[in-house]
Each structure stands twice: as structure tokens, then as C-alpha cells.
Amino acid sequence: MITTSGLTKVYRTHRSRGREVTALDGVDLHVREGEVYGVIGQSGAGKSSLIRCVNLLERPTSGTVTVAGQDLTALAGRGPRAGRELRQARSRIGMVFQHFNLLSSRTVQDNVELPLEILGTSGKERSRKALELLDLVGLADKAKAYPAQLSGGQKQRVGIARALAGDPKVLLSDEATSALDPETTRSILQLLRDLNRQLGLTVLLITHEMDVVKSVCDSAALMEKGRIVESGTVADLLATPGSQLAAALFPVGGEASGDDRTVLDVTFHGESATQPVISQLSRTYNIDISILGAAIDTVGGLQVGRMRIELPGRYEDNVVPIGFLREQGLQIDVVDHDEPALAKEGAK
């Protein structure tokens, strides 16, 4: 649905000479139709530039952006102004913003009608559509209110209703929940999830909060210094040994208690999550197992658990028990092992 290839954006801080800042460095992104795709990264990683390049609010320095089969970079034309074709394409891509960006001089309903005014919809049809959308986001009673009278969560709901006014197939969310408290964040994410399911809306969201990815995303990508360093469906990422995203989604801590110890990260998902493997391991090999840390959660609709355990003895002494765990369908990462290649090899 959204594909970028070789997307590069270089900002020049001074007109001719001076520093150049590479915000995007050859980003290849592929968002499938109907999924919620999260791009996560720290401030300055290039997330904002990326999402702004998708509807060409920022012109990429090079590379292409294709949305719903249409190559937007080809429509761009020259100069900073958007031509008619690009503006039409933009009207079919919804966008919500961190700071809502509602017009304070207009009522909630008039804000939602704004994109329809731009599309040239008739007055009657505009107000019908606006009220329908406000109903969809649960704000039917606030149609005549001004944005200043709403809470942050309500403002973002108006922002979402406005983004949906042009019947978009794609919704871009630029840190939509970053200015909201945790409770409101959950309700807004739930709304995005519902819209994704009910309307078949493809959602590309950027965030710096791991919880956002955890609760709504089907797929995710990690950005660092203008590059995508990891990407894939959440389930695949969790099954990838050494995945930074998986580790960040499921942080487990704990240090080895001595030199002659082997520390393992055990990731359970799918059926293996329900097996009593740790007690089986203990009984079969007659070893004492310490649990250093553990977490169980639902990620992307999957029950997933991760546990950091400690076995007595060095890695060499524990090859057989580790083999046993892998046979049970668990993903095992050996922490701080001097032969990491071995650990990665047996992942599946």
C-alpha cells in the first residue's frame, strides 16, 4: 500500500555552503494493505521526515514514494508548491498530528468539514459526512464546540475524524498519542485499531513509545540515524534472535550471579507459551534453574512471554539442556556468550 525505495532526505542548514544533515538515508519501507505499521525510533532518527515524505509535505532528495499504486514523487513537479495532481493524491491520504492542528476559529464540525470544502463537496453533504464521522469517533455531541473546549483526547478524535473525511485508504499518524496521557493514549490507539479493522484502513504511524507498537501494530520498523535497521511483522521480529526491537518490546533484565553460570533469554510464543518447559527441564536434567526476570504480554494479538534464566555451569556444560529447550520450540538467546554464532544458528 505504501512503498518507499531508496528514500533520502538531506537538509542543508545554510543556503550554499555549510553543514548538511542527512535525515533519511536510503529508506526502503513496505506497508501492506490493511495493516498497522509502526516506525519507532528516538528523536532525530528521521521518523518525522519519513512520514512527511510519504505525502510529500517534505520533498525527498532522492528515492520514490508509492501510495496505493501511485508514484507520488513523479507527481511532485518542481519547486516547493504542490501541483494539482499531488494535492488530489494528498486528499486521499489522511494525516493526524501530535499537536492536533485544529483551527481554533472553527467549530469541531467545521474543522471536520474543512477537507470536504477543499474537495468541493456540497454544504449538505459536508455536514452529513462530518456528523457521521464525529459519531464514528464518539464525539457526536461536540459538533458545535470549539477546539479550546475539548480535552487533548477529544481534540485528537476530531483530528482523526478530519483525517477520515476524504475517505482515505491510508492514514498517517505523526506521533498522534505523544501529547496525551497514558489512559487517553490507550483509547486513541484502540480507536485507530478499530478504524483499521472496520474500514480496512492502512495505518502508518510513527512513535517513540514502545507501548504504541506493542498494543496496535501488526508490523514495525526500527529507525536509527535515518536508516531502518530492523523491520518485519511483530511475530517475525519476536522470533528473530538478537532483534533489538524484540528486546525493546520485551525488556528482561538480570545479571549472572557468578562466573560459572550460563544466562539464557527464553522467548515463548504460540503453543510453547502454554508448556511447563522450565519444570520439565529441571526434572529431566536435574538442574537448578534461577529465574532472573520475566514478562508475559500480548503483542500484536499474540501471547508472548520472555524469561531470562540462569543455569549452573558454563555454556559447554549446558549444551544438552539448551538443545532440549530448542526442541520444545522455544527461542533461546545465550546472553554474553563468547560464541554468539552458535547461539544464533540453532534458533529455529
Binding site: N55, L57, R81, A82, R87, Q88, A89, R90, S91, I93, M95, F97, H99, N101, L103, S104, S105, R106, L114, P115, E117, I118, L119, R162, G166, L172
Partner: peptide
């Protein structure tokens, strides 16, 4: 006038004249 509002209308497909009429003047009124 907050640049975010201008950006929002650009993202809806508004042209410069729309931005002047619907954002800059009413918001600065």
C-alpha cells in the same frame, strides 16, 4: 499562526489560496 495548521491543510490537499483564506486570515483575525 501555527505552521502546523498550514501543514494540516497542505496534507488535506489545499493549495496556497485555500491556506490564506481558510487558515491564515481566520486564525489571525
Amino acid at each position: 499562526v501555527d505552521h502546523g495548521l498550514v501543514e494540516a491543510v497542505q496534507a488535506m490537499g489545499g493549495n496556497t489560496w485555500t491556506i490564506v483564506r481558510k487558515v491564515l486570515v481566520p486564525e489571525a483575525l
